[in-house]
Design a protein around this nucleic acid. Structure first.
Length: 450
RNA sequence: GAGACGCUGGUGUAAUGGCAGCACAAGAGGUUGUGGACCUCUUUGUCGGGGUUCGAAACCCCGGCGUCUCCCCA
């Protein structure tokens, strides 16, 4: 019999880890909603062009890591490698640039890159992100940072630093690039091969070079902030002043640049500081910035954008490393068992009202002896056993046994929910519509006709 | 895309080129209907495909996957 493995660079989220991801999603989504960022869901597959176009000049490297998709031999599609381009595409396709601006989106999606797997780098991974269109103000960048800072604080991540920088607007970037090319060209022969290539392509990324000699050369390079326009500097000053006002700690790091061309002015990264994550260079738990020209590049009007994307897997492992406890319980709290080997349907009938009430209930259908069923319930992590004993069932009663305290009580069927509730928690039941007036809140107006 | 190292039941691990074993986990049963113990029994493996050899988990080649480094990192 053949045995299969998950494709390279892809992994299963087994129930506990999936439960952890669900928790992170719930927290992040709720925060996004509180900030006025509704969720958008775009297809996993887009035209390759959507990504190549947004990537800009560095598109050859982007294309190389694209996860191509073909259908019936027809290509031209790719699995989404990042979240911004599809959101821009949707924003334009649905005419949302004509909606009242600004427009905000939150997303949480799997992403795919055809890269060689490494620590915390898979071919399928998850990202959350925010996109904010139509706000040129520097404080919009601060909003994105504030969101992320608050999110990390809420989930309990502390071992990180926020680095911010500015790369100037599109016009300034030409000046910056020209100046940097001029500077580094003087050292062309000293640069290692990789960086020599960056000299041709994206000069800014020379600052990311790892070669010590290259770094030394880079230290003497003209400062980006001296080359950009006064307006760029004023914009950046507003960002840092905003962060100061909000008490958000950050470092200004001249060498923080991002991989893609579309960033203008503000860029920022939340970098993990635990040694486990700093050995092979910086690992960002989230990063983003302002993209002044992207909407236009994608065929739309001249609308500014700003946003961020965060790695869910990275966040998850960073939290684990920090010892943050995420509730990943997946076990049923209650097990229904019976001494009568042929009463499976009765067991379901006992479970039903408990489930309706919000308890997690699993049933043992086996015909094993009661002690084996109890043992099994304990091994499955149950806290309470509801036992249909042969004696008690004749009187319409069941036994509710606390498996931790090893105490039990005979109860009428009608009282099982109450009795079980004394030992294990009810889980909140999701609803399609929030109940008005719940938790003492002002009821929302509802349409009386509906 | 390039390189280095690795891969033995579900998990963790043994086995000079010479009988693939152990522990835990899992399943069935028992201790004669209230549990994690104990006892008995059982299931399950050399990543895949070739080659060398009387004989391969081990040596060689190809492939798969993982970890790490480079590249890249939207």
């Amino acid at each position: 019999m053949p045995t299969y493995q998950a494709p390279r660079g892809m992994r299963d989220l087994l129930p506990e880890e999936a439960a952890g991801f669900d928790r992170l999603l719930a927290v992040t989504l709720a925060r996004a909603q509180r900030y006025g960022y509704p969720r958008i869901v775009t297809p996993v597959v887009e035209d390759r062009e959507v990504f190549l176009r947004s990537a800009g000049e560095t598109s050859d490297t982007a294309g190389k890591e694209m996860y191509d998709v073909s259908l019936h031999g027809q290509g031209g599609l790719a699995l989404r490698p990042e979240g911004t381009a599809p959101v821009v595409r949707a924003y334009l396709e649905h005419g949302l640039h004509r909606a009242p601006q600004p427009v905000r989106f939150f997303y949480w999606e799997p992403m795919f890159r055809g890269q060689r797997p490494q620590k915390l780098r898979w071919r399928q991974f998850w990202q959350w992100g925010l996109e904010l269109f139509g706000a040129a103000e520097a404080i919009a960048d601060v909003e994105i940072i504030d969101f992320t800072n608050g999110l990390l604080a809420e989930v309990g991540l502390t071992d990180f630093v926020l680095k911010v920088n500015t790369v100037g607007d599109t016009a300034s970037q030409a000046t910056v690039k020209a100046a940097l090319v001029e500077y580094f060209s003087a050292y062309r022969d000293e640069l290692d091969d990789d960086c020599k290539q960056r000299l041709e392509g994206s000069v800014l990324r020379i600052f990311d070079c790892k070669n010590p000699n290259d770094r030394k050369i880079a230290e003497g390079a003209p400062k980006i902030r001296d080359l950009i326009s006064d307006e760029d500097r004023a914009h950046f000053a507003e960002v840092t002043e905003g962060l100061d006002r909000l008490g958000i700690r950050y470092e200004i790091d001249d060498r923080t640049v991002r991989g893609f061309d579309y960033y203008t002015r503000t860029i920022f990264e939340f970098i993990l500081t635990d040694p486990e994550f700093t050995q092979a260079g910086d690992i960002a738990v989230a990063g983003g910035g302002r993209y002044g020209g992207l909407v236009r590049t994608m065929g739309g009007p001249d609308v500014p954008g700003t946003g961020i994307a965060g790695g869910v897997d990275v966040l998850y492992f960073a939290l684990k490393k920090q010892g943050v406890k995420i509730d990943e319980s997946v076990d049923a709290d209650v097990y229904v068992l019976s001494g009568d080997p042929n009463d499976g349907a009765d067991r379901i009938q006992i479970a039903t009202p408990l489930r309706e009430a919000g308890f997690r209930v699993a049933i043992d259908y086996s015909k094993r002896s009661l002690d084996k069923q109890l043992e099994s319930a304990v091994k499955h992590g149950a806290k309470v056993a509801v036992i249909r004993g042969t004696e008690e069932s004749r009187g319409g009663k069941v036994i509710v046994r606390d498996l931790m305290a090893k105490e039990q009580r005979v109860t009428r069927l009608a009282a099982v929910v109450v009795e079980v509730g004394r030992h294990v928690p009810k889980r909140p039941k999701p609803r399609l519509i929030d109940e008005p007036g719940a938790a003492g809140e002002t009821p929302f107006l509802t349409d009386p006709k509906s």
